[in-house]
Simulated assay, not measured.
Amino acid sequence: MKKKLISVVTPCFNEEANIEELYLRVKDVFAKLNKYDYEHIFIDNDSKDNTVSILKEIAKADKRVKIVLNSRNFGVVRSSFYGLLQGRGDATILIFADLQEPPSLLIDFLEKWEEGNFVVQGVKKRSEEGFVLFNIKKFYYFIINKISEVELIRDASCFSLYDKRVIEEFRKIDDIYPYLKGLVSELGFKTAIVEYHQAARKKGVSATKLYIAYDFAMLGITSHSKVPLRLATILGFFMSIMSLILAFSFFIGKIFFWNLFPVGIASIIVGMFFFSSIQLFFIGIIGEYIGLMNMRMLKRPLVIEKDRINFK
């Protein structure tokens, strides 16, 4: 009987301290799972350390390890999605190189998949990444679920498994900058969750800076909700009415109480800055939507490959 093939995809950038340990831990997991063959695809986002040389040494000794080298850093969103599309397995698992998600959970993911689920989603119930950051993310998922047009999985991570049917649907999607967690909800495939405790990064420095975290957050909102745009319209309408009432009140007050009703410069300045800040905020929101539309309309490739190793 032919064994099922599992594709494990690992995006990486400057992970020389973790990459070999991740490879060995994934290898150990599949050594216990005799009914599966597997391939481990590493997609490197133009690392500046020794990540690539370590990967090449591993790939030389183990032909199940395949490497895609990007010509430059295309960002984690584009690189991860492109990596998923390279898998040819019956199921494809996305796991990052920082070892914050335990590779031992691959067994649980595969069990859920064998039960008939097309997507298995890792969900962080606890995390060592920091109390404040973890709870900010929880609050974000609470907000986005309230405003999103589809129900997203609360506290979901990118650690996930996709059946080959889901990957085939991914290949049909012409989107240079997809929000993967929302995309899964949009497609509506049967999904199971696996809860886990996220470990702290033990080695190396995370490439996910504040700006990148903000980019992820705005991508989720602008990809799956029109609420901010509607809120701008509704709030603008009511603020206009309030401004008209206020202006009319000042006008009447000035007519009937000419000497007793001075119009202060302070109130004018405060009002002007208040309305200006509201306008700038919503101009920024509209700009986020326009920027995402522009990126998708340009039809640029997800990534450009510099080289690939061990692919037939």
Rank of each mutant, 00 (worst) to 15 (best):
F257M: 04
L133A: 11
I43V: 11
D28Q: 14
S276A: 09
L106R: 05
R308G: 05
I286E: 15
I221T: 03
K4P: 01
D98G: 09
S206F: 04
F261W: 08
I309K: 02
Q121Y: 00
I245W: 08
I278F: 15
T233K: 15
V26N: 12
K312P: 12
L229P: 04
G89E: 08
F257T: 04
R300G: 13
M297K: 15
I309L: 07
K4C: 09
Y177M: 12
Y177R: 09
G75Q: 05
G83R: 14
T222H: 01
I144K: 05
T51P: 07
I278E: 08
F256P: 02
S79Q: 11
K35Y: 04
G116E: 09
A31R: 14
I283G: 10
E16I: 12
K48T: 14
A207G: 12
S225D: 04
L85T: 15
S223F: 01
K137Y: 11
I212N: 11
R230I: 05
I173E: 15
D174N: 13
K226H: 03
S7M: 03
K4A: 12
R64I: 05
C12K: 06
L231S: 13
I54D: 09
K112G: 06
D215A: 14
K60N: 10
P301K: 08
F238W: 13
P301T: 06
A91R: 10
L183G: 00
E149N: 11
M242V: 03
F118S: 11
F256S: 08
F118Q: 13
L161D: 11
L161M: 12
I221K: 07
I147Y: 02
L244E: 02
A59P: 10
F139G: 08
V8M: 02
F273E: 01
I234M: 13
G188N: 00
L33D: 03
H40I: 06
R154G: 04
F96N: 11
L302N: 08
K146A: 14
L105T: 04
F159G: 14
E101K: 10
S7H: 00
Y36L: 02
L298R: 15
I136Y: 07
S249V: 10
P262N: 11
V166N: 11
E16C: 13
K190N: 09
K60H: 09
V26T: 14
M1G: 12
K125I: 07
N310G: 04
V9Y: 02
L94D: 00
M1V: 07
G236C: 14
F250A: 08
F237P: 01
I153P: 04
L133F: 03
Y82V: 06
H40N: 07
H224F: 10
F273C: 01
E21F: 07
K66I: 07
N117W: 03
H40A: 01
I153S: 11
F248V: 05
K66G: 09
